[in-house]
Simulated assay, not measured.
Amino acid sequence: MTKVFAKECAQFGIRCNALLPGLTDTNFASALVKNEAILNTALQQIPLKRVADPSEMAGAVLYLASDASSYTTGVSLNVDGGFLF
């Protein structure tokens, strides 16, 4: 969907990108992060072996919203500690 929107909206100067976050220490994910068995299983699948801090997602969003990404469109940016290699 991101690529279709990017292609359709490019003619209007609108860029469309998506952030694909990994396991992040947020209120939403607290049930996973606080459950030791689930957390250990998840960490075995994440090459960086840790949960992301919300600020790490914010940095990616800041990039996508900034002029630094002015020629970036149709991208799905994985910020997942290597989970989707």
Rank of each mutant, 00 (worst) to 15 (best):
M1V: 10
T2W: 07
T2P: 12
T2R: 12
K3A: 12
K3F: 01
V4H: 10
K7A: 14
Q11E: 14
F12Y: 15
G13N: 13
G13P: 08
I14N: 11
R15Q: 11
R15I: 11
C16H: 05
A18S: 15
A18G: 13
L20R: 13
G22S: 11
L23Q: 03
L23T: 09
L23F: 06
T24M: 06
F28Q: 09
A29E: 14
A31L: 01
L32V: 09
L32I: 15
V33K: 00
V33F: 00
K34M: 03
K34R: 13
A37P: 01
A37S: 11
L39S: 09
L39P: 01
T41A: 06
Q44K: 10
L48W: 02
K49V: 07
R50G: 05
R50H: 06
A52E: 07
A52Y: 02
P54Y: 09
P54L: 03
A58M: 02
A60W: 06
L62C: 11
L64T: 02
A65V: 14
A65Y: 01
A65Q: 03
D67N: 13
Y71G: 02
G74T: 12
V75G: 02
V75R: 00
S76R: 05
S76D: 14
S76K: 03
L77G: 07
L77Y: 02
N78H: 11
V79G: 04
D80G: 11
G81T: 04
G82T: 14
